[in-house]
Design a binder for these strands. Structure first.
Lengths: 188, 188
DNA sequence: TTCATTATTTGCCAAATGGCAAAAGTTTTT
DNA sequence: AAAAACTTTTGCCATTTGGCAAATAATGAA
């Protein structure tokens, strides 16, 4: 739980009473590799803070290919924020890439926290904004990079993952085919 | 000014008094094609609402190439949000792609609005989040598309722009070279 | 352990895109 | 109007990436 609290504290002050409340509202969830935290077609009812492990967000494009939109690692929140906020069915899956320990907040818990902790909304908004800005800044340059560079950058960010994750997850994230990725790996 | 007010009203309620205040804080700025709204290296001190025209956000990558990160069109806000909020020098330029009419809010005006209008922060946060989510959702599939598809999608979103904008703006946004884009155009 | 299933690598060749430089076209300046 | 500066197109060829199918390798189930 410390990881979560420290993370929140980086975005705003919280007193001990508030911290205790947050701690009480968080539920530990162990999610095994391959299992889904949330699924397309359903309205997301929870937000996950990743204490250990890595999730990925993926969807099916119009050609029916499964596309990994991004990976989310330790000490970050994961949720289809758009669907969650608007209470509309998600178009994405959120899946454990490796065994994960999550701290889960339900919609109701979040409402309580928002109503009780005056700084809560401000903190959450900062976190949300930062996470989204990072995603844009990550994706944008990828378009101009070649496949090998994109793979090397992935390796840097997720060194432990490259060989433990199905090729398909990675290839679709990098925007290349599995065989291309396989060849790129070989050439390194 | 109506465009702005209607846009804001889509994200939250505002009474006439509040609308008047917002109107008073907004400054009209005509920005001609090619001119910069904000520049890399400077701390952004203003936010722009685009009443007419199109802006682009661009930067120089490590190879020194100028990359168009995205275009922002009518009825949207533009700012390097990260630098603006953190008050750190921007790494991006915001430039008029065609002649623009902007409604500009200074940091101070925004602070006033935030302090005076109770719903302000909520509205702005919703707008920010929506804009960022849209950018991620736009960029992510582009990686899996070929250059022609990316160009066609651009054409759909900005039909009027394709032939009025320097090739270089467009090509760097699409992640291809100018000559490739020129050939793609020809082939259509 | 063995079989079945799934994931990854590889070969072969086609298609897409890039690099570079010259030519053609546009715009701006004088 | 002519010259200069800049933008876009084009040719030629190299490199990258893809498509498809077969071969290997790895994983999981019986």
């Amino acid at each position: 739980m410390d990881k979560l609290i420290n993370y929140l504290l980086a975005f705003g002050q919280l007193n001990q009473q508030q911290i205790d409340l947050i701690t009480r509202k968080a539920q530990v969830l162990k999610l095994n590799k391959g299992n889904y935290f949330s699924e397309a077609g359903k309205i997301p009812k929870q937000v996950a803070f990743i204490e250990e492990g890595i999730l990925r967000v993926c969807y099916y494009n119009s050609e029916g290919d499964e596309i990994t939109k991004y990976f989310v690692d330790e000490t970050n929140f994961a949720v289809d924020i758009n669907s969650f906020n608007q209470k509309i069915p998600s178009s994405e899956y959120v899946q454990a890439v490796i065994d994960c320990t999550l701290l889960v907040f339900s919609t109701e818990s979040l409402n309580d926290l928002s109503a009780t902790i005056i700084q809560w909304d401000g903190i959450i908004n900062k976190i949300t904004e930062k996470a989204l800005v990072e995603k844009v800044n990550k994706l944008s340059p990828m378009l101009a990079e070649d496949a090998t560079t994109r793979y090397l950058n992935f390796l840097e960010k997720f060194p432990s993952l490259a060989n433990r994750v199905p090729l398909s997850y990675l290839a679709s994230y990098l925007g290349i085919t599995q065989s291309s990725l396989s060849r790129i790996r070989k050439s390194i």
